[in-house]
């Protein structure tokens, strides 16, 4: 019983998220939920490395895009079933993470330097994906519409919601387990003070590489789900800076280095985004493009101003329990 206690809050949140598509049956809402969960999953990947490990990446698009392109290419070009392609795609995401991590961390890049090198890798991936024939080049790659659960395509949006939630839930439980285990402790030690961690006998390089590898795998899974949901990819979608930004915004807004941060952040950000969009649209009839995004930017700054340690940081009790 007591072994389960640290996981109870996660299971409760998952249960609430699982009920949502039953309560909200409109396509708009369900689509919003799925997209937000995908962002939350990508954010979990980022948070493991950035939140727990203190290594801020600006280039999680490298992992997201690799996962997305891999699952699309394996099924469209090689005729592999997407369910079989999924683990391969996730594995490739992990591999990209391991390679970038090994190169960057061996060169002892930290802080802004690490952030910028990840950004540069993502840009290289984007430029290459835009010209390679296997990715469809600039025309992108279209996953054939073939609605069948065996084909990783669902007629029922709720089913896709639950599937995405399954991934997110598994990752949240995993992160909580890591957080409570030796790996989590080492990772946090690296974040707080690398030299001290090294003095205590932590293999800093190995911990960082392990974290970015796992981070890459998780974010690649988010890419796979995105590909299967929208069935179309091009270089800008898969490797564009938008997803790198989404993946880091969600945990920072929600609460860095917490299991719930990325989920909360994704919901708050996209909730605000949708609300301002709808509100401004009804107010102006859509005649003034951009005003909703101005409002979104203002709200973003205000949120950061009032909740400097993320929204979870505003709830001291929860923070204590989460830590």
């Amino acid at each position: 019983m007591s072994a389960l206690r640290p996981y109870a809050a996660i299971l409760a949140v998952l249960a609430v998220l699982a009920v949502l598509p039953v309560v909200f049956t409109s396509g708009t809402m369900q689509n919003f939920l799925i997209f937000t969960l995908i962002v939350a999953l990508a954010g979990q990947g980022w948070n493991l490395l950035g939140g727990y490990g203190g290594q801020f990446s600006f280039g999680h698009a490298s992992f997201f895009g690799t996962g997305a392109y891999a699952i699309a290419i394996l099924q469209e070009r090689l005729g592999l079933n997407p369910w079989l392609a999924l683990p391969i795609a996730i594995g490739l995401g992990a591999l990209v993470g391991a390679v970038i991590g090994t190169l960057a961390f061996r060169a002892r890049l930290r802080g802004s330097y690490f952030a910028l090198v990840t950004l540069a890798f993502a840009e290289v991936f984007r430029i290459v994906a835009n010209v390679l024939p296997v990715t469809g080049g600039a025309a992108g790659i279209l996953i054939r519409l073939n609605v069948d659960p065996l084909n990783f395509q669902f007629a029922d949006r709720a089913a896709f919601h639950w599937l995405t939630l399954l991934f997110l839930g598994a990752v949240m439980l995993l992160v909580r387990a890591l957080e409570r285990g030796r790996f989590g402790a080492r990772l946090v030690a690296v974040r707080e003070n690398e030299d001290a961690a090294r003095a205590l006998g932590v293999d800093v390089l190995r911990v960082k590489i392990a974290a970015i590898t796992l981070s890459g795998a998780i974010t690649a899974a988010a890419g796979c789900l995105y590909a299967q949901k929208f069935l179309y990819l091009d270089a800008m979608i898969a490797y564009g800076p938008w997803i790198s930004v989404e993946a880091l915004l969600a945990p920072i807004i929600g609460g860095l280095g917490t299991v719930f941060g990325p989920v909360l952040g994704a919901f708050v950000l996209h909730g605000i985004g949708e609300l301002t969009k709808t509100w401004i649209a009804t107010l102006t009839g859509g005649a003034l493009p951009g005003v909703d995004l101005v409002l979104f930017g203002v709200l973003l700054i205000i949120t950061v101003g009032f909740a400097p340690r993320g929204i979870l940081g505003l709830l001291p009790r929860l923070r204590v329990r989460a830590a």
Binding site: S26, T28, N31, F32, F35, F230, A281, G286, P289
Partner: peptide, 21 residues
């Protein structure tokens, strides 16, 4: 009923869903 597609596929799909609603 106007929808801003925001130049992204998920933006476009979200608008289709809203139109359906």
């Amino acid at each position: 009923v106007f929808g801003d597609a925001r130049s992204t596929p998920e933006g476009g799909v979200a608008e289709v869903e809203r139109m359906q609603g």
